[in-house]
Write a protein that binds this DNA or RNA. Structure first.
Length: 203
DNA sequence: TTGGCGATTGGCT
DNA sequence: GCCAATCGCCAAT
């Protein structure tokens, strides 16, 4: 499989559109032990004005990466236990993001399993905290440009198989939030076994 | 300066 | 299905 980095010009400058666009794309991570990558199968949109968005109350030291031009990483610690990976999703100065919730492991599966402490493929990167643990993603990567070659970036394989059809995109409410909890802003590859969340949300 | 609160996970019932 | 673990953030004191 041949893959190439995604340029910023290819990324939609709109949060919800970007969340759908990213399904089927690839997150590449360069680790000390080698490369690891996975195909995005589940995302959530946190658009401007959304009460669940971390940038909702304005810019702070933690969330400033959300205000960067679309295509930059926002990484934060959730519940003191799990790291979350987002990508900024609007023009420079506008706070918004897309959360990566699950990937299907592609390259470096052994590296990811080792970091996760499991040999069960379905447990490797199903869920936002598991995904970041598998790829060694934490706060030091916050603010990086995901459209630039480096320790982590977005890529595509440019094949027909990578194009997710509209009919294959599932939509549901977002998981684990309390504010603006009823908005249909979670997107996933319908039928993919690496998608997280309760089964009733995945139909 | 402080304390309540998460965009979760894994272990146990 | 239930719940504790764990800790940085930030609104309010």
């Amino acid at each position: 499989m041949t893959i190439r980095p995604i340029t910023r010009a290819e990324l939609p400058v709109a949060t919800v559109e970007l969340a759908r666009y990213l399904l089927g794309k690839i997150i590449v991570r360069e680790l000390p032990e080698g490369e690891a990558s996975g195909r995005v199968v589940e995302t959530e949109a946190y658009p401007p004005g959304d009460a669940a968005l971390h940038a909702y109350r304005g810019i702070t030291a933690r969330n400033r990466s959300l205000f960067k031009q679309h295509g930059h990483a926002y990484v934060y610690l959730c519940y003191g236990v799990s790291q979350m990976l987002n990508v900024s999703s609007e023009a420079d100065g506008i706070g918004a993001g897309v959360l990566f919730r699950a990937i299907e492991p592609l390259v470096g599966v052994a590296h990811m399993m080792a970091r996760r402490g499991t040999t069960r493929l379905l447990d490797v990167a199903r869920g936002p905290g598991r995904l970041t643990q598998a790829l060694g993603i934490a706060r030091p990567l916050d603010g990086l440009d995901l459209c630039e070659a480096g320790p982590i970036y977005l890529a595509t394989d440019d094949t027909c198989a990578s194009e997710i059809g509209i009919s294959e995109i599932g939509i549901s409410t977002r998981i684990g939030i309390t504010r603006d909890a009823d908005r249909p802003l979670r997107f996933f590859v319908s039928g993919n076994r690496h998608v997280s969340g309760p089964g009733k949300l995945n139909r």
